[in-house]
Amino acid sequence: MTNPKKRGAQPPVEPSSGRKVPGSDLLAAAQAAVGAAQSAAGQAIDAAQVTAGFAFDAAIRLPPASAQLAAQLPDLVENLTVAVDRLNTTIDRLDRTLALADPLFATYDRLLPRLEAVIALGEDVFGALAKVPGVGLLGRITGMSSDPEPPPEPPKKSRRRKV
C-alpha cells in the first residue's frame, strides 16, 4: 500500500559535537511525534484502502452509522496529513530559532558567573561597612539606610465593655 506524502520531511538533525542547542530533547520528542503521526497516517490509509475494497460487499450488511464513518475516513486522513505537514514546518522553525539563539545562550552562560561574583562582592562590601562604627548612624542621618524604618504601630484599642 502507500504511505502519506512526506513533503518537507528531513532526516533527524543531530547536534554538532561542539554546540549544545537548548531544547534538543523537545526537538527529538517532536520529531518522534511526527514519525508516529506519519506511521499512523500510513496505517490509516492502508486501512482505508482495505475498507474501500470490501465496501461494496459490506454495503448491504453495513449499518448506516458505520457507512457514514467509513465515508468520512478519507477526509480525516487528509486532515491528519495536513497536521503532520504543519508539525514538520513548526519543528523546522523551532530548530532555526534555537540555532539563532544559541550564541545568546552561550553568552549568558559566560556572563552569569561573573554577575554572581559581582553581587557576592557587593554583599561582602556592605557587610564589612556595616561593621564599621558610626556607619549605621551616618546612614540614618543621610536617609540612605539599608534597613527601612518600620512604620509606627497603631495605638492599641482598649476592650472595655460598655454597660
Rank of each mutant, 00 (worst) to 15 (best):
Leu137Cys: 06
Ala70Phe: 04
Asp57Arg: 12
Gly53Cys: 06
Pro12His: 04
Val125Lys: 06
Ala33Met: 06
Leu98Met: 04
Val118Ala: 14
Ala83Met: 02
Leu137Arg: 14
Pro150Gln: 13
Ala67Glu: 09
Arg114Phe: 10
Ile60His: 14
Asn3Leu: 15
Asn79Thr: 10
Arg110Lys: 08
Arg61Lys: 14
Pro4Asn: 05
Pro15Gly: 03
Arg19Asn: 03
Pro74Asp: 01
Asp75Glu: 10
Gly143Phe: 09
Arg93Ile: 00
Met144Tyr: 15
Gln43Glu: 15
Thr97Ser: 02
Pro154Met: 07
Leu80Trp: 01
Ala52Asp: 04
Arg93Lys: 07
Gly42Ser: 10
Phe54Gln: 13
Ala70Met: 09
Ala30Glu: 04
Arg110Glu: 10
Val34Met: 04
Ala128Met: 08
Thr2Glu: 11
Ala71Met: 02
Arg161Gly: 09
Arg159Met: 09
Asp25Met: 06
Ile60Tyr: 15
Ile141Thr: 14
Ser66Pro: 00
Asp95Ile: 00
Phe126Leu: 15
Leu121Arg: 15
Pro133His: 01
Phe54Gly: 11
Ser17His: 13
Ala99Glu: 02
Gly8Ile: 04
Ala30Phe: 08
Gly35Lys: 14
Ala59Tyr: 04
Gly134Cys: 03
Asn3Glu: 09
Ala101Asn: 01
Asp57Ile: 13
Ala59Val: 07
Pro12Ile: 05
Ala99Gly: 11
Val84Leu: 00
Pro74Ser: 05
Val132Met: 04
Leu69Met: 07
Val77Met: 00
Thr89Pro: 01
Ala70Ile: 09
Pro12Cys: 00
Gln31Pro: 01
Arg96Leu: 09
Gly122Lys: 15
Phe54Met: 13
Val125Ala: 03
Arg110Ser: 05
Ile91Gln: 00
Arg110Asp: 10
Ala67Pro: 05
Pro148Asp: 03
Lys157Leu: 14
Thr142Trp: 01
Val21Glu: 02
Leu62Thr: 11
Ala120Lys: 13
Leu129Glu: 10
Leu80Pro: 01
Ala130Glu: 15
Leu76Gln: 12
Ala44Trp: 06
Ala71Asn: 08
Ala30Arg: 13
Asp147Gly: 08
Glu14Asp: 11
Gln49Ser: 12
Leu115Trp: 07
Ser24Phe: 06
